[in-house]
Amino acid sequence: MKKILVLVESKNGKLKKSSQEVLSVALNSNYETYTCAAGEGSGGLGTELGVWGVQKHYYCTDTSVAQYNPESYQQFFAQIFETLKPDVVLGTSNMLARDVMPRLAAQFDCAYMSDITELSIGDDIICKRPMYAGKCMAQVSFTDESSKILLVRANQIPVVDASKAESTEAVAVTLNGTAGKTELVSIEKGESEKLDLTEADVIVSGGRGMKDADQFKLLYDLAEPLHATVGASRAVVDLGWVPHSLQVGQTGKTVTPTLYIAVGISGAIQHLAGMSGSKFIVAINKDEKAPIFQKASYGLVGDLFEILPVLAEKVKALKA
């Protein structure tokens, strides 16, 4: 039987939703499923994985993988790859996987693809992704039988009900040495409590219409009850109102939430490129001719400083 190795990640000891999405692809396939995770608490996931039909869960709690380091993480994945010889490696198309998995693909001469939005694995592999910043879609075709490393965008694959009764064997991996050419010097934590923009299910994003940096507080007031992550347009990043890590669009992040609320954003083509894959888009803007309304599902023309507080208040009441 063919084998899938899924790179899973946890937050507060629970499988991330993005990992459940990738596991759903594995569950729906006719392959055997194996998982792996590195870092503190990575072994504890074993108990949660049985329902996903996972045979073995490889984990590593060595100090060298306590924080991300491309060398030690590559070493971890490579050791499992050599043992298991998986036909397919699946992961979420996030910063970590996009950084290290291309090296693994080069190391083992694998087919590699990131940012997949549709994936089903059976006798054939059906795989689709956006191209040219979402201006079109393409099918990803594989020309040989090499192993494949496939990274899936968050919030694109529906999570299935997992109710297998497999007892997953947890296998500890001890790392062999690495070349030691990459040394982690420091980590400066950002707003780690919130999901990253690329994984967020709801995003509240602000543009030049917010008038100044202080007014972004209004967006956070709305984001709070929605459990949303705050984003921004390039214009306000260039003005220095918010850091570049918040930028959505061509030279920022490509996001694919279920709900994207664009506030005071006119909708330059570079911005639309980064968020048009959102399932539902709400646009709030004073200019009814703003291009953002071409992409929006729901449009509110008006003064955002009047609309935002009312919206925040009503959402808060709803969630209370």
């Binding site: 991300y68 970590l96 990459t182 040394e183 950002g190 919130k194 570049h244 890590s245 918040l246």
Partner: peptide, 14 residues
């Protein structure tokens, strides 16, 4: 390098 959630990682490469 800027990673998830605005976190910044500093790495030293040989």
């Amino acid at each position: 390098r800027e990673v998830e959630g605005g976190t910044k990682e500093m790495t030293k490469l040989t």
